[in-house]
Computed example of a mutant assay.
Amino acid sequence: MNKRIEVIEAAEREGKLLLYAEKYDGHADRLEAKGQILADSDQLAFIYILEDPEHFTYVSISPDYWQHLEHARQNSVSVWAVINEEELELLSFHEELTELVQNISGNANYGDEMEGRVSGIFAG
């Protein structure tokens, strides 16, 4: 069964953007970054996919943290998830985010609210 965890805090430290996730009920040390980001227009979130041998875990990033993502993207700051005190680099984050932002901008298929929020924060 797939799991979803929400980002609850973001901070830039030591040249990294750290996205702190809520408590995870699995083995965080077994998670691996998939290098893929999806849009969840129903929940207004970006979803970074992690996996372990048994399931996928979706790291949900709400608009509350998108300014942090854009700052990291514009400044080439690596993005990491902190899950149960384990740090995991989110591979290909900037490339995936840039592609997704370009797809969403001006595209009504993602819904007006998602498109508007993305266009308002990300430079494209």
Rank of each mutant, 00 (worst) to 15 (best):
Q102P: 01
W80D: 10
G106A: 07
D52K: 11
Q74A: 14
L38F: 13
A33Q: 04
G106H: 04
A72F: 07
Q102W: 04
V77D: 05
A39W: 04
D52P: 01
L31D: 01
E22A: 09
E95W: 10
Y24H: 07
Q67H: 06
N75C: 05
D64W: 01
E99C: 14
V59W: 05
A108V: 14
S105T: 15
Y24Q: 13
L91C: 15
G106M: 04
S62E: 13
G35S: 09
G35F: 09
H55E: 10
Y65H: 14
V59E: 00
D29I: 03
V101I: 13
T98R: 12
I49C: 03
Q43M: 15
A33F: 04
V77F: 06
G111F: 08
E87N: 08
S92V: 08
L88S: 11
H68W: 06
D29A: 09
G26W: 08
R73W: 07
A72S: 15
E85L: 10
A28R: 01
S41K: 06
I83Y: 00
N84A: 00
S62L: 12
E96W: 07
L31R: 01
N109Y: 14
D64M: 03
A33G: 14
H27N: 12
N75T: 08
V77P: 02
I61Q: 03
L69I: 02
Q74V: 01
F46M: 05
Y65N: 02
R73V: 08
F93Q: 11
L90N: 08
Q74F: 01
R30D: 05
I47Q: 02
E51N: 10
D40P: 13
K23Q: 14
T57Y: 00
Y110S: 06
G111C: 02
H68A: 06
E32K: 15
L44C: 04
E54D: 09
G111K: 10
L50A: 08
L44D: 05
G106T: 10
S92I: 04
E86V: 13
L38M: 09
E85Y: 07
Y110G: 02
S62F: 06
E96L: 03
F93G: 06
I61M: 10
A72C: 11
I104M: 10
L44T: 01
L44H: 09
A81F: 07
Q43P: 00
I61N: 02
W80Y: 15
A28W: 00
S41D: 11
F46H: 09
